[in-house]
Simulated assay, not measured.
Amino acid sequence: MSELLARLMARLSQEDKLLIAFSGGADSALLASAAHRALGDRAVAVTAVSASLPASERVAARTFAREQNIPHVEVCTDELDNPDYVANTGNRCFHCKTALFDALIPLATMMGARMALGTNLDDLGDHRPGQSAAVARGAIFPMVDAELTKFDVRSISRELGLATADKPAAACLSSRIAYGDNVTPELLARIERAEESLRQFGFREFRVRAHADGTLARVEIVDTELTSAFERRGDILTALRSAGFVFGSLDLGGLRSGGMNALLSLTPVSR
């Protein structure tokens, strides 16, 4: 066992029971797997299901949990019923995490478990208002406590042979919508449809960002795939229009995590 993994296991072993917020991404997958190794069936992975979760990610989360023999449940969250979430200000993630913990608390109370998130040290420097909601509800961050970075997460995941070790980051679909534009099930479905088309074209790391109330789709794609994307710009534009967008563009800046956060300092995010 590497020193990094040993630190994480030692931290998790301090807990009696845990509910892990499990999206199926690299961070939460490692946390769920390590917690299962440390606590057995006293660690349960929980996936929040709503219109902001792509169907492909829901399937991937189920598959990972089944292959790792991790107890796994799904809960439906109602963030889209919250006008503050729909308004999509810079605090949207706070309302999302609040809805998640509202759904988890009854289960956590029944189990006598604490709630854990797969936040790592690198996440602390980003704009993540959901973390304050997590802290307010008493959630813990074992990978922060173990002083693990994103690089460490992927290194440990490879050590454990996890299929998610090199999985591209996949934030919720709502993060694709420009701040100030309403989050709606219809727009989320259009973004999901557009991204699925790009995935079928063979692209691996990208985001379809929606602007101008869903009129414009701005495609961020990793630098190594940008040339190929330009060569297939006609196919991409057809896919974007089929998903309901009027205009389509390729962002010359490439893929950037939290790409919409640049708007927070430029434009008002409330109406």
Rank of each mutant, 00 (worst) to 15 (best):
I221K: 11
A6I: 01
V73T: 14
A51H: 13
S270W: 13
E147T: 13
T77F: 03
E3A: 12
S50G: 08
A35E: 01
G118W: 09
A35V: 00
P142W: 02
A32T: 03
E3G: 06
A55H: 09
S50Q: 03
S174T: 14
G253Y: 03
D41E: 08
D223Y: 05
M1E: 05
I156T: 05
R58P: 00
S242G: 15
E67R: 14
A243G: 09
A45W: 00
F201L: 15
V269I: 12
R241F: 04
V135A: 14
D84I: 10
T267M: 11
R158Q: 13
R137H: 14
K150S: 12
R7P: 03
V246M: 07
G24E: 01
T149W: 04
D41F: 00
S242K: 12
P168A: 08
A113P: 09
S249N: 06
K97G: 00
V135L: 14
K167R: 15
Q68I: 08
F151T: 13
L8R: 02
F141K: 00
I177S: 09
E205S: 13
S157N: 08
L237Q: 05
P185H: 10
E231F: 08
L198I: 12
A170N: 11
A32H: 07
V153M: 09
V86Y: 04
A29L: 03
R209W: 06
G40L: 02
D102S: 08
V219G: 04
S155W: 02
T224Y: 15
